[in-house]
């Protein structure tokens, strides 16, 4: 299958910080990607480079097989409303939608209208007078109604209340089901979006630390709780991504799955097994990557030595 995005060794640094560090990525068409990471991890920078809104120091970006920079053919199929998107001062949401309709060839005005009602957006008020949530709603509506082949949502839920966020996720799943396209959902609220994702990319300090199908990540790690000694013996030789100690107890998260025999063994040793959610796993991988940084080690994990 042809890829939508190909990124090779993309690097970007600002005066005194590295925003992207040799990023390699490949995105396939008609999938929902989650671009996850902490605030400042490099999510927006990466999306800016992919849409030629920003410029890398080195590396190569290909979107729909071509360099997106000043490339009308490519850009006209992309929609990227950033979290801090600026609008002309005098514009109301209505003006913004009318403008968007001029440039996105798949623009669905009816959908935009329905979303306006969903989010109860005052379309005649100037955008600069809107609340943070309403501002996010403007971006969400443009992103969804554009039906662009490649759509980026940059922390789309900021300021939206729980009801509005659910509405966004519902509408996204619904519309994506009817009009499949490539969607990149950038978020630091992982639990909320986890179930919507088909593929997960985790970025931390400008580096990609996870790039895998969501379904293979789910259940790809487990936590064992019990007396530290027994946990250590049980997990001998496994890749450990997180350890918590409490008195003589340990709660250790390890990569992989357990066979039926191993589960029985754990039960017989009096160890408790707990599943690890996508969010927990991402958080632990991120922390463990930071730990590896401190230890000046290249690996993102530590072996249990007991």
């Amino acid at each position: 299958m042809k890829t939508v995005i190909e990124v090779r060794n993309l690097s970007k640094s600002y005066r005194n910080s590295v925003a992207l560090d040799s990023v390699i990525l490949s995105l396939e068409p008609d999938r929902i990607y989650g671009l996850l990471g902490r605030n400042g991890a490099g999510k927006t920078t990466l999306m800016s480079m992919l849409t030629a809104q920003g410029f890398p120091n080195s590396g190569e970006v290909k979107v729909f097989g071509e360099d997106p920079y000043e490339n009308e053919q490519v850009l006209s199929r992309i929609c990227f409303i950033r979290e801090s998107q600026k609008y002309p001062d005098s514009f109301s949401a209505k003006h913004a939608f009318r403008s968007a309709a001029l440039f996105f060839k798949n623009w669905d005005q009816e959908l935009a209208g329905r979303l306006v009602e969903d989010f109860q957006l005052p379309v005649k008020r100037t955008i600069k007078k809107l609340s943070r949530g309403q501002l996010s709603a403007v971006g969400v509506i443009i992103g969804l109604a554009s039906r662009a082949e490649l759509t980026f949502f940059d922390e789309p839920y900021l300021g939206l209340d729980a009801v509005a966020r659910q509405l966004f996720y519902d509408r996204l799943v619904e519309d994506y089901g009817r009009y499949p396209r490539t969607i990149v959902l950038s978020s630091h609220l992982i639990d909320e979006v986890a179930n919507l994702l088909e593929h997960v990319i985790v970025i931390d300090k400008g580096r990609i630390i996870m790039d895998d199908d969501a379904e293979s990540i789910r259940g790809s790690a487990f936590t064992v709780v019990g007396s530290a000694d027994k946990v250590g013996t049980f997990l001998q030789g496994r890749e450990i991504i997180h350890t918590d100690n409490f008195a003589s107890l340990a709660s250790v998260t390890a990569v992989g799955t357990l066979s039926r025999a191993e589960k029985t063994e754990a039960a017989e040793l009096g160890l408790e097994l707990a599943p690890v959610s996508l969010q927990q796993l991402v958080v632990r991988k991120t922390i463990s990557a930071a730990g590896a940084d401190l230890g000046a080690s290249k690996t993102s994990s530590l072996e249990v030595t007991r």
Partner: peptide, 10 residues
């Protein structure tokens, strides 16, 4: 997908 709010491919 809509009912369980999950990815349609899943």
């Amino acid at each position: 997908a809509s009912f369980y709010r999950i990815n349609p491919a899943t």
